[in-house]
């Protein structure tokens, strides 16, 4: 086994990469924006926002919030994946596999298809709220149904199988809702299920940003306990970890983290799976480093995916969920085949 690089070097390198990628992301797209326009747009935004021209507006109202939202969502999904992998002691778990994403999709579909009928609405918060509730429902269903009656422990096989079942259930719910929905709503559901960042604005940046930064900071506090969990639940208890409360807290953090992000941008798969894997290869598995670094690497990967999704069919856009899957699946399979990577 080759010697792994020092933990400390990775974070700054990733940070620099993130800045570079963000720079490309805000410059290129359907319209390329020059450096001068970026600077003048920033200046005018604070001094005389009315006098901005079209390109400057595109930058300030579309490109920039989109890039920032992209970073936050990527960070949320990647850290969510890291937390779940640590919690379930399994490297192939991601928010999509244990129902979080499907539940959110179901909640969103419910809003698209029947929101008008129910008449329940809290303005633009309705969609995120519906998605969060759906995610909470499906994830807790998977979590509790997969626990053994006798020991109260969750076996990985039980967990994944329950996840498959609950996923199928919620996806058929989504299918049913798009079947009964009228055309514009049905298309909204489809788009949402493929993931899109085109709806980014400063409100969504603010909400997702608060949720992302807050939950990541909290989750860092549990990194040590999640490390102890690596050698088993009993062993972790011998090391002073209260397993029951840890499971609850981490699961809740994860649902908030993933559901809020998913609520604004739709279902984006594989980021939560790939990012921790890549980092483990560079870095080992210490969660204190994994959480911090996967936040940055998640941002980088999603920014790249977003850039690809905007560039391939320019000026049209590809749904970002398709890009992450097309890029993510081969990487995942490659990782699985590596001989020196243990499970």
């Amino acid at each position: 086994m080759k010697k792994k690089s020092n933990y400390k070097g990775t974070f700054p390198i990733l940070l620099i990469l993130l800045v570079i990628i963000t720079f490309f992301s805000i410059r290129y797209g359907a319209v390329s924006i020059s450096l001068e326009e970026i600077f003048s747009s920033c200046r005018k935004f604070f001094t005389e926002p009315e006098s901005m021209d079209l390109t400057e507006r595109i930058f300030m109202e579309i490109r920039l919030p989109r890039a920032i939202l992209c970073i936050f969502v990527g960070a949320s999904l990647a850290v969510g994946g890291t937390l779940l992998q640590a919690l379930f002691r399994n490297p192939i778990v991601e928010p999509g596999l244990i129902g979080t994403s499907c539940g959110a999709a179901f909640g969103a579909a419910l809003y698209f298809a029947l929101g008008a009928t129910f008449g329940f609405s809290v303005g633009k918060w309705t969609l995120p709220l519906a998605a969060c509730l759906g995610a909470l429902l499906s994830t807790s269903l998977v979590f509790f149904l997969s626990q053994s009656r006798n020991s109260g422990k969750s076996s990985i096989v039980a967990l994944l199988l329950t996840g498959i079942a609950i996923n199928a259930l919620f996806l058929s719910g989504v299918g049913f809702l798009s079947y009964i929905a009228r055309d514009p709503q049905a298309r909204s559901i489809v788009f949402w299920n493929l993931g899109t960042l085109s709806g980014a604005n400063w409100t969504s940046v603010l909400i997702v940003g608060i949720s992302t930064v807050g939950t990541i900071l909290i989750s860092l506090r549990y990194a040590k306990h999640l490390n102890a969990l690596m050698i088993g639940e009993e062993e972790a208890q011998f090391l002073g970890v209260n397993i029951k409360s840890l499971k609850w807290k981490v699961l809740l953090i994860n649902v908030i983290m993933v559901a809020v992000a998913t609520a604004f941008v739709g279902v984006i798969s594989f980021v939560g799976l790939i990012v921790p894997h890549l980092l483990r290869i560079i870095n080992g598995s210490d969660n204190r480093f994994l959480i911090r670094n996967s936040a940055i690497l998640g941002g980088i990967l999603l920014c790249v995916a977003d850039l690809i999704s905007r560039m391939v069919l320019r000026p049209a856009e590809l749904p970002i969920g398709i890009v992450t899957s097309v890029v993510g699946v081969p990487i995942f399979i490659f990782l699985l085949q590596r001989k020196n990577y243990f499970f």
Binding site: N90, P91, M230, I231, G232, E235, F238, R280, S285, F342
Partner: peptide, 11 residues
């Protein structure tokens, strides 16, 4: 304990 196994690679 008996049979302590690690879920992830660690130094």
């Amino acid at each position: 304990s008996q049979n302590t196994e690690l879920a992830f690679p660690l130094k």
